[in-house]
Design a protein around this nucleic acid. Structure first.
Lengths: 129, 129
DNA sequence: CTTGTGTTATAGCATAGATATAACAAAAGA
DNA sequence: TCTTTTGTTATATCTATGCTATAACACAAG
């Protein structure tokens, strides 16, 4: 999976890497059990320092997206332990999005439709449930 | 409207203030044309430096939530000029939320329901549209 | 035994966040 | 007119964060 950094972005490099991995998992381009390149190799590919990648991997591990194995490096492994805490953080961020949307006169139905489009764009196989 | 700072949060103080104002507008507790306390007064109330408040106000102005007037201070005024740019930023943030939600096995309908609950919690008068 | 892994430690540099004074022009109010 | 208050700008200092650089460690693979 191709990952690229935007060195002109105001977003921290390790956050960019973290987000791209999460998007990769959501798109199912990074599958459960798959290994990410090692810290040093990924750093070399991205043109970034080793510690920056390490920080991203540690953050992904902290939030339950990968498991770090000395043998296989960072292995995609979405953890559902402490899921309530993760979900809480996600919804907390969602709340600010909704507040901004209301201020900008985005209707509830439009907002839900955007969520639906984004959701299906990530995982098109989902019908409903 | 009561605004409080969390000095133990990892979120920047000026971002906290900014977000609380946005939430206040979404809840219609801060109404169009209403004035926020002056930079110095707000700083005194929050126990924060003047420049921190100034930075928050400038950020709110930048994103079209207030207009800064030398006579009346920061006046709530949700601007819909350059709305497309604002909406784009909101949706960009939304995309990461959706990606995380998918990874954590949150279904589309659950996500939409949460959006609905949050939306109605902010503006209960909205029926549909 | 060599190599590569995650991990930790230390250091240096640049930027951002927060504070502290100070000053300015413009408008309000007495 | 005079004083006060407003937003705004300019420095300066301090701390924390992000990024880089170099080095070293324990552990496992080959």
């Amino acid at each position: 999976m191709l990952i690229e950094m935007d060195f002109n972005s105001n977003e921290a490099l390790y956050i960019q890497l973290r987000n791209q991995v999460i998007i990769g998992i959501a798109k199912d381009m990074l599958k459960e059990g798959e290994s990410l390149p090692s810290v040093r190799q990924m750093a070399n590919e991205l043109g970034v320092n080793m510690h920056t990648v390490n920080k991203a991997y540690a953050s992904l591990r902290q939030d339950g997206y990968v498991k770090l194995d000395r043998r296989n490096g960072a292995v995609i492994s979405v953890s559902l332990e402490n899921r309530s805490g993760q979900v809480e953080n996600i919804y907390s961020a969602m709340q600010m999005i909704v507040a901004q949307a209301i201020c900008k006169n985005i209707s509830l139905t439009e907002l839900q439709e955007v969520v639906r489009e984004m959701y299906l764009a990530f995982s098109p196989e989902v019908k409903e449930d």
